[in-house]
Design a protein around this nucleic acid. Structure first.
Lengths: 201, 201
DNA sequence: TGTTTTTCTTATCTTTTGTTAACGTTTTGG
DNA sequence: CCAAAACGTTAACAAAAGATAAGAAAAACA
């Protein structure tokens, strides 16, 4: 994928939240960079301060912690989704997790200080603040749903719901990552799958 | 607590995110309302569209779903915290949970259409958008932490962490609500507490 | 292609949690 | 102040999940 296509996908995704006129795009565009990562490369590592917020224009990433030497997968970002260690990015504190590509991945990024400049820019600041608000609100709702699912659903219910909503993406992700995502062990997910098989068979 | 004091607490809390000059406050203030609720009254119920975002200036509330006739407590808001069914408020879809006071409670609220007017107001829109963004980002980080805790921690670890961070607020909340909040049953929390007692004794 | 690594399943055993019910205590509300 | 409701603990049993290990299948890659 060439740079122009990548930048256009970024623009298109921003416009899902706020429309941009040509002038505004000309202010924003020069501040973007394109990062290409091979499979299993890290976008961020523990100890680093997340300097970029990005949009995955091709490929996918997973977020994971290392606890007692074990990787625990926490989240994913796929094509046309934003990617960052928001906590580190927003608080300017060192990150505590990895973000690693699951396949060869292209990410359009905007760095922290440039974003602050945009927020403060009278030409485009109001609209960028709105954009930032709407993105944060969007993810707030995603997180709220997932948070609730841990309280109101059993692991089996969470897995069934993921099957319904997750779509084809699930086929591309190793199952033990999904197990982590659901808050259970890979062995336990395997048992849940067998239970479901027996019922539907 | 009188209205003036309540409104001032609201202003003070907004200024934790963005400073307001007197002119701006004079724009914002007339749009606020004060809601007083007695203990166990509902701030919102399933089926309603959340029309207000509020700040708890006195008292506390809990969020809960009803599943199979059972109340499942999901979240709390205490003094100086914002309160709303964000999903319903932001998406304009009917709410699926209750928000109910735990004690006599005062809430300063701003309704949806007034907030949209503020966002669109050239005088104060940029700053209000920023305020909205920062609040959303703040809760995003809270939710992210809680979400992670379900993936990376055991119920016992979550309870221990809650003891460390929760402070005196925990004393005021019935334990079975806390159990729900941790994603376990009241019986199980009781056992966890006994296990901890034995270890520390 | 063939070898190594990763992934998934299965089995066994242990630990934890859920479920239900009983009991004593505390709180609530008339 | 008293009766009713709510709350927390405990017990017993069932169900589910964690830990560990082994083996088969699939994927990676050289």
């Amino acid at each position: 994928m060439d740079t122009v296509t990548a930048l256009n996908k970024f623009r298109q995704q921003v416009e899902m939240f706020v429309p941009l006129n040509e002038t505004e795009w000309q202010v924003l565009m020069p501040l973007l960079e394109l990062i290409a990562l091979k499979k299993k490369q890290n976008f961020i590592e523990p100890g680093m301060i997340a300097n970029h917020i990005g949009l995955v224009v091709k490929g996918s990433v997973r977020y994971f912690y290392v606890k007692d030497g074990e990787e625990i997968t926490n989240y994913f970002s796929f094509e046309n989704e934003f990617v960052s260690s928001y906590k580190s990015f927003l608080t300017r504190q060192p990150c505590s997790n990895y973000i690693q590509t699951l396949e060869d991945t292209l990410i359009v990024v905007l760095n922290y200080s440039n974003l602050q400049l945009l927020y403060a820019n009278p030409l485009i600041g109001h609209k960028m603040e709105r954009f930032g608000r709407l993105v944060a609100e969007f993810y707030l709702l995603c997180y709220e749903d997932r948070m609730s699912s841990f309280v109101t659903q059993t692991p089996e219910e969470r897995y069934n719901q993921l099957l319904e909503t997750g779509g084809e993406v699930l086929q591309r992700i190793p199952q033990h990552y999904i197990a982590n995502f659901l808050g259970i062990t890979p062995v336990s997910l395997s048992r849940i799958r067998r239970r479901i098989m027996k019922i539907s068979a």
